[in-house]
């Protein structure tokens, strides 16, 4: 690991000040929260920094209720604590389930909510320093496009990058009404979750729309109330301890056999957590049947551009999405 200095921020403002100061000196900085992803990357040489600014001691760990059943979760709340939190489990079971489907007990004890949003792709080439990767080394090329394509994205890829976002939690958040609260040099900024992560385009080194030095302080989840009936299903190559090939987060409200409302988040398909808006649109107001669910995901998958190795993901989604929605329908009945 390349050497770096370590310092502890005493407040959010202090953290921002330290980053701004370093920037003026031409020094690279990284915020340290749980560090579960960052420390591996520093070790592997995927990332280097001059100054590590530890923000983990800041008082941003609370889970509080918002009006109308929403929740505000501090950015430094540990994944294990949030997944086990009674309010989270009762109000947004899909959030708890998605978090428990990710990583391992040890990592969830350290990893934070804000850090989970910022975890980087597990694309094998991104993690292999001996191969070109535009995300790790801009302009060097993408090894995944012509290489092993099994885990590549289906939707929103570019000529520069075909990596997928690795988070389970973010798939659940994509299906809900989530605002990411961020502090930066100009004060607080509130970002719709859908606008936090970005598609690769010709700047795949940028995972998110966060500006330099901005710090996530909280995640706010507003309704919908029907998310009390929600599920997460993760498909992977073995039954545990692996990243998803694809995953599905869904919430469903059925009234009189009709889909009153529905939310679908998909993981493993894109550079950002993917909300299946086209499928949702097809389903709203229509019959709450397995056939309708299958037809809806087929419409969503019309935009998929699989390569020779990852077409199986389309098949997986065309089975998993109707299965999850049907299970939720039975739960409602």
């Amino acid at each position: 690991m390349r050497p770096f200095t370590y310092e502890r921020a005493t407040s959010v403002a202090d953290a921002l000040r330290r980053t701004a100061g370093a920037s003026r000196e031409g020094e690279r900085t990284a915020y340290l929260a749980g560090g579960t992803n960052l420390i591996d990357h520093l070790r592997l040489g995927i990332r280097e920094t001059d100054r590590l600014i530890d923000v983990s001691h800041l008082d941003l760990t609370e889970v509080t209720e918002l009006e109308e059943g929403g929740l505000r979760i501090g950015a430094l709340a540990r994944n294990a604590d949030v997944a086990a939190h009674p309010l989270v489990r009762r109000t947004f079971p899909v959030v708890s389930a998605a978090m428990l489907a990710g990583a391992s007990g040890q990592l969830r004890n350290m990893a934070t909510m804000g850090g989970n949003l910022l975890q980087r792709t597990r694309c094998v080439y991104f993690q292999d320093l001996s191969t070109p990767c535009n995300k790790r080394d801009p302009g060097s090329g993408c090894s995944a496009i012509e290489g092993l394509g099994t885990y590549n994205a289906l939707i929103g890829t570019s000529d520069s990058c075909v990596a997928v976002h690795p988070s389970d939690l973010c798939v659940a958040l994509a299906a809900l009404d989530v605002t990411v609260v961020v502090e930066g040099p100009l004060g607080e900024r509130r970002i719709d979750f859908a606008d936090l992560h970005r598609l690769p385009g010709d700047r795949p080194e940028r995972d998110t729309t966060l500006e330099r030095s901005e710090l996530i302080t909280a995640i706010e989840i507003a309704g919908p109330g029907f998310a009390r009936r929600s599920r997460y299903r993760k498909l992977r190559e073995r039954a545990s301890y692996a990243f998803a090939t694809v995953s599905v987060a869904a919430a469903l409200e059925v009234r009189d056999g009709q889909v009153a409302d529905v939310r679908i988040g998909l993981g493993g398909v894109s550079h950002k957590p993917h909300r299946a808006l086209r499928a949702e649109e097809v389903l709203r107001g229509g019959p709450a049947t397995h056939e309708a669910y299958a037809a809806a995901i087929a419409v969503e998958m019309e935009q998929a551009r699989p390569g020779p190795d990852n077409g199986y993901k389309v098949t997986q989604l065309r089975r998993a999405v109707p299965a999850v929605l049907s299970a939720l329908t039975e739960e409602t009945a």
């Binding site: 340290l32 560090g35 579960t36 420390i39 591996d40 391992s104 040890q106 990592l107 004890n109 350290m110």
Partner: peptide, 22 residues
């Protein structure tokens, strides 16, 4: 590299992978 768990210790009573903590 935080995969195998052999280095697990308790930090304030909770398990962590000590190769993944500074």
């Amino acid at each position: 590299t935080s995969n195998c768990g052999a280095c697990t210790v308790l930090l304030d009573g909770r398990s962590v992978k000590s190769c993944n903590v500074l």
